[in-house]
């Protein structure tokens, strides 16, 4: 247990020691999105009745930031350790694959939630944000961060260089987040794109998270929850299996 706690503490310290880059910068980026989009879109039709565009946008931005940062945490930690070789320090001790999985996922979730909270607090300063059901808000915040943390483990194990992580981020994570309804309700999309959005697990994360705030969503909350839980379980199973097999770690 001490081994696991130590690895968890190290993973949390790793991002906390560079908090400007890992926490403050993403919060600032979201603030910029918020200012610009809220300005440009002010007066446009709100997606949900009684909800302004600004209010609608904030949970979406918070979730997007959580997803991206949770992914960045596990993937960059692993690829850095692999490239610098100091992954050795955690491969030599008697740490199990479960120790690895939980330490990395929890640390990344902590970063995701910290950044999400930061975006939320910035939002609170700008407008009133209702909270319909705090349990759903937290459930989706946890699930979203943990799911991307697990995906980050898979990417971090698979990649041999930073370039591949960047490709993963720019060609998979970014399109999936931008096309998941962060900036709009998917109900405003043409039929084909709506159908396509339903295949995107990020959509359910954002839609369910938003439900926690407004009590309204594009799809039923239990559908979002099941989809999010399913995606999280699937990616976690993949990550644990890779860790257990020693894929690219113990060859």
């Amino acid at each position: 247990m001490i081994g696991f706690q130590t690895l968890l503490r190290k993973e949390i310290l790793r991002f906390w020691k560079v908090a400007f880059q890992t926490v403050a910068a993403p919060v600032l980026t979201s603030l910029l999105y918020l200012l610009i989009f809220a300005h440009v879109m002010s007066g446009s039709n709100a997606a949900f009745p009684g909800v302004t565009y600004e209010q609608f946008l904030i949970p979406g931005l918070a979730m997007m930031t959580m997803l991206q940062n949770a992914f960045a945490n596990t993937s960059s930690s692993l690829i850095q350790s692999k490239i610098t070789g100091n992954i050795l320090f955690i491969l030599l001790p008697p740490l199990s694959h479960w120790n690895f999985y939980f330490a990395y996922v929890i640390a990344a979730t902590v970063r995701g939630l910290t950044v999400g909270l930061g975006v939320f607090l910035v939002g609170v300063f700008m407008t009133h944000i209702p909270v319909h059901n705090v349990a759903w808000v937290l459930a989706f915040a946890f699930l979203g961060s943990a799911m991307l943390a697990a995906l980050g483990i898979i990417a971090g194990l698979w990649a041999d260089k930073f370039d591949q992580i960047a490709a993963f981020q720019n060609f998979i994570i970014m399109p999936l987040t931008f096309l998941s309804g962060v900036f709009y309700s998917i109900k405003s999309l043409p039929g084909f794109w709506q159908t396509l959005s339903h295949l995107n697990p990020f959509f359910y994360m954002i839609d369910g998270f938003r439900y926690g705030f407004f009590g309204t969503s594009d799809v039923p909350i239990w559908l979002s929850f099941s989809a999010a839980l399913g995606a999280f379980a699937g990616l976690s199973a993949g990550a644990v299996w890779l860790l257990k097999s020693g894929y690219k770690l113990r060859q």
Binding site: M1, I2, T6, K10, L13, K17, V18, F89, P94, L95
Partner: peptide, 18 residues
């Protein structure tokens, strides 16, 4: 590990070994 001092490095290593 460029994130840590010598003492931190050793404490972490001990921790990994329980």
């Amino acid at each position: 590990d460029p994130f840590f001092s010598v003492r931190e490095t050793l404490r972490f290593q001990a921790g990994y070994f329980g």
